[in-house]
């Protein structure tokens, strides 16, 4: 997570909206994106760790395509300023 800022959620059925207190932007997330962001909010993870967590949580086979979609998800989270590289 980008430090010093918070996320606020609301989930309806299999979709969520999430508000970022820094950018002030609100994003629409599906189950996978939601599960990934929640996992990262909890603690910093490597891509492999994140793939494992999300695939378990959403009961999806962690094949290469899934790995690729998580990688893309991470880069869009990063672009939106929701997360940053953990370096400490």
């Amino acid at each position: 997570m980008t430090s010093g800022f918070e996320l606020l959620w609301h989930t309806w059925d299999d979709e969520s909206v999430v508000y970022h207190t820094g950018s002030g932007d609100t994003h629409l997330l599906d189950t996978i994106a939601m599960s990934a962001l929640m996992a990262l909010e909890n603690k910093a993870l490597t891509v492999a760790e994140l793939v494992e967590k999300v695939s378990k949580h959403c009961a999806i086979n962690p094949d290469p395509a899934f790995f690729e979609s998580i990688t893309q998800l991470i880069s869009s989270f990063n672009r939106l300023g929701l997360i940053e590289r953990y370096s400490h």
């Binding site: 980008t2 010093g4 800022f5 207190t21 820094g22 950018s23 002030g24 300023g81 940053e84």
Partner: peptide, 16 residues
């Protein structure tokens, strides 16, 4: 109040 968040966020982005 919203501007305070915005400025903090921009400063964070600039620093990054």
């Amino acid at each position: 109040d919203r501007q305070v968040d915005t400025i903090r966020w921009e400063v964070n982005r600039i620093q990054q």
